[in-house]
Computed example of a mutant assay.
Amino acid sequence: MIRRPHVPRVPWPLPPRLADLVVAAVVAVFTGADAAVNVEGYRQADQVTWLLFAVSIGALLFRSSRPVAVALVTGAAGAGWALYGHIGELLNLPVMAALYAVAVRGDRRRTVRTGVTAALASGAVSVIAGIDVVQPEGAPVLEMLWPLVPLLLGEVVRARQELLREYAARAARAEADREREALRKVELERLRIAREVHDVVAHTVSAMTVQAGLALDALDARPELARQAMRQVRLSGKEAVRELRATVGVLRGPADEADATAPAPRLGELPELVDRVRATGLRLTVHADTEDREVPHLVELAAYRIVQEALTNVIKHAAARHAAVSVTLAGDRLAVEVIDDGHPPAAPPGGAHGYGLVGMRERAAALGGTVEAGPRAAGGWRVFASLPVGGAAA
């Protein structure tokens, strides 16, 4: 089962509640120290000053969960200090911390709206309060600019966090894709091995069963024929073991690399297949013509297995006396045809198809080809496969 890709969040160094407490404590230290300083010519620290201080620091405890509300409260407290006549270099720290949270925990549109509002409000307060300690002519402009600093910083941090989340999401999707591809390859390999084992076992066991029956029937009257049939049973068994060893070797790993890479059957081995089938008593004619052209190995393997499976079905189900195999190359497609003069196979219970026909169609489809199977108008059964020999098949 494929797990849904998990997109990890970019964690904060501290839990939000604890981070708010730490920020509030740090801001309280610096802002409180500045609020306690009395500037000559301006209002001295009193109860109103400390009340606004308490409101600002208390609001910062909710900075993560309610950043906009905290920015309004701290901004109002900062404006109250200015309008009340108590000034200080660090009295704007609470509202700056709140504005930073607005940008980090919001989006760009909210940051822009907040920046415009905060700049206009700060400029208006500076004009009303008459702040002119450093630069009387430019004081309103400077007061309009400072709220933008924490907003820009927060926007940069938020953009970086979004980028990290996107990278994490891409990594998760890539991992999920790799996992799906690995499972797909395993499934394809499992089906391939299942087809190979089925073709080898079904064909060989069917042929050996018929040959053993012939040997048993001829044991007393024609012992030489019985011995010939049993020799053919032994040869078929050895051939089946060889092919099974080559197929199963794929599952074993590097230690059995020689078996895993043993050559798979090709069209050149059709005569051996035909001899084994003829040993069952079936009269078989073969016509193979590839025009001396190179046929891709996978196409040859698929054609061989289709012929093998079709002949296995003839032996098992058709009760035929004669069968014909034709493998010809026409243009860019290899035509494989197997016909017999037996009766059509009975439909399995429930209308299901056997694995042999399914395997033939899967082999052809994997190469971009097709397989047709059905009764002939003149009697018997016909299997026809068309396999491409160029493009993807190569």
Rank of each mutant, 00 (worst) to 15 (best):
A323Q: 10
I315S: 05
A35C: 05
R113F: 12
E143T: 06
A378D: 15
G32C: 01
A172C: 01
W81D: 10
P136K: 14
T312N: 12
R66C: 05
G75T: 15
V200A: 05
I193Q: 07
E300D: 05
L270D: 10
L99E: 08
R113E: 09
E239I: 07
A366V: 12
P147T: 07
E243G: 03
G281H: 05
E162T: 09
A33N: 07
A394D: 02
G281L: 09
A24H: 11
L52K: 02
R178Y: 04
G78L: 13
A182G: 00
G359N: 15
L284A: 00
P136H: 13
S65G: 14
D46G: 13
P13A: 11
V29S: 06
Q161E: 10
R283A: 15
D199S: 14
P349R: 09
G374K: 06
A207D: 04
L52M: 09
V250W: 12
Y84W: 07
L235C: 08
A169M: 03
G253R: 04
D332C: 08
V248K: 10
V299M: 01
D220T: 04
G354R: 04
G391C: 00
A176K: 00
L214T: 09
E362T: 13
E155G: 10
A347L: 14
P344K: 07
R170E: 14
L301D: 09
A129L: 09
H6Q: 12
P11T: 12
V205N: 11
A366Y: 02
V125E: 07
D289P: 01
A168W: 04
A182M: 01
A258I: 04
A121S: 04
T49E: 03
Q161N: 12
L60F: 02
R305E: 15
G390E: 15
E89D: 08
E175A: 13
A76C: 02
W381Q: 02
R321K: 11
P296W: 00
G391W: 00
L235S: 12
R17N: 11
V277A: 06
P348N: 09
W146P: 08
E181V: 09
G123V: 10
